Simulated assay, not measured.
Amino acid sequence: MYYPYFRGKQFELIAIRDTAELMAGAGFTPIIEPVKAQLKGLQRALDAVCTAGGTVIVVVNPEYGDHADDGEKISTLLRDEYLELENVYAGLLLTETTSLGDAVKLYNNHKEHQPVFIHAGFMDAKALAEKIGDKLEKTRHVFFEQNCKKLYRKHFDGAHRVLLRDGFTKRRNADHLSIPIEVFSDLHITYTDEGMDGFGDFLTVGSEFTEGGGPAYAVAIHLTFIDAAKDDEMYIHHFVSDSKDTPTDPAGKFAEALLKLRITYDTGKSGLFLGKALTQFLELQEKEHFPGLGQAKKLSMIHHIETINNFLH
């Protein structure tokens, strides 16, 4: 149903662990593209999902990060620790540099890992569908919407298909000041109209990969909400600090963003779902505590997952 896409940074993996039971109960399947050389954090996330009885897709050939040139350590982890489990699928990432031969080789190398094709710029959909042949209906496919238009996706009719949309517009944090609310996505409502069996997104982070954050000239908290008055379309609040001229005092800037969140929520018109993540944000505001920007990003992602779960269930 819902397939959130994570790039496997520390706080993203912690967010998966913290929501493992919720996602398992809701039938959500996180997709993880590991970007860090150390795989212990990934393994803890996978163990949490498996313990909760959920399912997860792990990209075995990442495009970004420390495994971009060689994903063998990821494949080895899946083979050694998770081969006997039905919870863990191997994600085969097909980009614009992936040849048809590469795609077929990846599939053959991971047949025992319940492979899932992840289409992210691959150029030869028709030939791949023909290679799969009469087994097509038994395969699973995830499509990056920005890379896979309807004609591309049509080659895989009959298979299990999932559409990923990037609803997050990447800007400098300070630039969100002029756009406090904007549309995020309607895919949670319209994915069946697109002929899909599931939908996904890149949460409140976006699909663009960055190795690490730079100095925080402004601090922003991004929280999604579903507007029942607008056909249940999903929007996103950007709560941004007014201080933005120097990279100093991230704690003070976080407090400014949190205060805006508090004021907006207290109006009773924010549309924000009061789950565990939002409750923690409000408690941080009351305590005037700064947990670090990574923790704030984690809570934002968890809030997004809780919001979709609350809507669908």
Rank of each mutant, 00 (worst) to 15 (best):
Ala26Trp: 13
Leu203His: 00
Phe254Pro: 06
Leu94Asn: 03
Glu96Tyr: 12
Tyr191Glu: 08
Glu96Cys: 09
Phe254Glu: 06
Lys40Cys: 10
Ala255His: 15
Ile16Gln: 01
Ala26Gln: 13
Phe122Glu: 03
Gly121Cys: 09
Phe144Gly: 10
Pro180Glu: 13
Ala129Ile: 03
Phe184Cys: 07
Phe168Met: 13
Ala125Phe: 02
Lys150Asp: 10
Leu293Met: 14
Thr248Asn: 11
Leu106Glu: 02
Phe209Arg: 07
Pro30Trp: 04
Leu274Arg: 12
Glu145Thr: 11
Gly214Ile: 10
Tyr82Pro: 00
Asp157Leu: 09
Glu21Lys: 10
Ala174Leu: 13
Glu21Gln: 11
Phe225Tyr: 15
Val58Cys: 00
Val142Asp: 03
Glu84Gly: 14
Asn61Ile: 00
Arg7Met: 03
Asn310Pro: 04
Ala45Phe: 02
Val35Thr: 15
Phe273Val: 10
Gly198Val: 05
Ser270Asn: 08
Ile14Asp: 10
Glu137Pro: 06
Leu177Val: 08
Tyr107Val: 11
Tyr5Lys: 05
Ala45Gly: 02
Gln295Cys: 14
Leu187Asp: 03
Phe184Asp: 05
Thr248Arg: 11
Phe202Gln: 06
Glu256Lys: 09
Tyr265Asp: 11
Ser300Cys: 12
Gly252Pro: 07
Leu22Phe: 02
Thr210Ile: 15
His67Glu: 01
Gly252Leu: 10
Asp232Gly: 08
Gly294Asp: 03
Leu78Lys: 01
Val49His: 01
Val219Asn: 06
Asp80Asn: 14
Tyr217Lys: 03
Leu312Cys: 13
Glu137Gln: 12
His155Phe: 07
Val116Pro: 04
Thr279Lys: 14
Asn309Glu: 15
Lys9Asp: 00
Thr190Phe: 07
Lys40Met: 13
Ile16Arg: 00
Tyr89Val: 02
Ile179Tyr: 11
Leu258Met: 15
Leu94Phe: 07
Asp157Trp: 04
Ala37His: 09
Glu72Tyr: 14
Ser241Cys: 05
Gly27Tyr: 06
Tyr89Phe: 14
Met301Arg: 01
Pro291Glu: 06
Gln114Arg: 15
Lys170Cys: 09
Met234His: 08
Gly268Leu: 04
Pro247Met: 04
Ser243Trp: 03
Gly195Leu: 03
Asn147His: 15
Asp227Leu: 08
